[in-house]
Design a protein around this nucleic acid. Structure first.
Lengths: 229, 229
DNA sequence: TCATAATTCAAACGTTTGTATTAATCATAC
DNA sequence: GTATGATTAATACAAACGTTTGAATTATGA
């Protein structure tokens, strides 16, 4: 019935509209980002994607597997670009420890770049990611762990080189503060500040702000131990 | 039937166990913090609280009103303590602008203090708060807005005095990065770092870390505009 | 053209959800 | 005690959920 879907479609009258499967992926990503994983039902998705109710179960198996597919599609390129950028930062340092700002930028920039505007308007996946980092769903947690574990390992090592005075636990700590700030800001980007006018974000300066904020935090906390406690 | 619940109970054989209503509040707070608002059903709560299924609807009206009651119970004292601490910081400055660290500590310390250990083990409300800040539930958003709007207004003003070079939008921005870092860290506190041993947190040094991280971020970003963009 | 596989479709399944209902129990005031 | 209002209890309800099913439809390869 649906076993050999290695080649879901050979070649036929395409161009009319995207395949059902990818249409569902796009629509589901947007709805999940806007309203949350549990709030959005498979009926919401299939209706918005102009597909049949059974389409999600047919193409993905279950709702959870659809969610996993959405994360796979975004997280794999994001984390690949992170590792590439980290390699470049280490290479640029030429034997010496990499610059703290370069390491942080290697981590932050891909999240912002892929988090926004993949032909869908706005921040979409960035918001989805922010929400799901906070959610207690254990299966989702396991999925994210698989994606992030190798990335975290390499960035931890690089950060310990860039900040030799910090222990592993302290780097772990500060990195989590950075991740929190990053994703919270991605989520808040389209909220209006106290003064009504909508906030405008320019990609490059946004990344620089985040990097500067995080880098300062890393350096400041390096001396907190000698100041207090 | 249940209209005049001004005096839910006069005075009788208490001490055996807490009232049903407050028992539900405690249990629901813990379950919501651990598993999320949508995942936990009213049946989960009433069973864990050893109450009848109808108890939530009887005492609170609806599940959403129970959630609102949970937030009211914690947020009112937290934000009151924030405002008191802010007053103290301004008073301590004696006419001059308050110290940045004092303002940030006035905001952060109550969240950590009330977020953890109100006779329940662990971080409980801190986690719940972190999750719900990210959630797209519009009614919840409205509830949080009511609680935070006056607090945000006063802290914005104080931060603009402490950092006179920053515009209102820039303060808004940085404050959100700080809030993101704060709540993400509260959520992550009981996760284990890469090295297996569970992380131990000491209240005072934890607060100082967060304050130092945020203050450094505020100061660093003050000069980002002249550096780039 | 015909057989075969892939996809779509409409309908139904069994759970679980939050809430409402109605009667029983309890404590208090007269 | 007895009447009154507050609480608890057991059950019922309609709606929504994710998933399954089997037939109808479409596209593909011989």
């Amino acid at each position: 019935m649906k076993d050999q879907q290695a080649q879901p479609k050979k070649l036929a009258g395409e161009v009319d509209r995207a395949e059902t499967k990818s249409r569902i992926l796009d629509v589901a990503e947007q709805l999940f980002a806007k309203h949350g994983l549990e709030t959005v039902s498979v009926r919401d998705i299939t209706q918005a994607a102009e597909a049949n109710l059974g389409a999600i179960n047919y193409h993905f198996g279950t709702k959870k597997q659809l969610i996993a597919a959405i994360f796979d599609r975004r997280l794999i390129p994001i984390n690949q670009e992170r590792l590439d950028a980290l390699d470049a930062a280490i290479r640029a340092a030429g034997g010496k420890p990499p610059r703290l700002e370069d390491v942080l930028e290697a981590f932050i920039r891909p999240a912002v770049r892929f988090g926004m505007d993949p032909k869908l308007g706005g921040i979409t996946f960035g918001k989805l990611m922010g929400r799901c980092l906070m959610e207690p769903n254990p299966e989702l947690e396991a999925l994210l762990h698989i994606h992030f574990e190798p990335v975290a390992r390499r960035f931890d090592a690089a950060l310990m080189q860039a900040m030799p005075h910090l222990t592993r636990v302290e780097v772990f700590w500060r990195m989590h503060l950075t991740v929190g700030a990053l994703h919270h800001s991605l989520l808040m980007l389209d909220k209006t500040p106290p003064g009504r006018p909508k906030i405008v974000i320019e990609f490059e300066s946004y990344v620089q702000r985040l990097v500067a904020f995080a880098a300062a935090g890393f350096r400041a906390l390096a001396s907190v131990k000698s100041r207090k406690s």
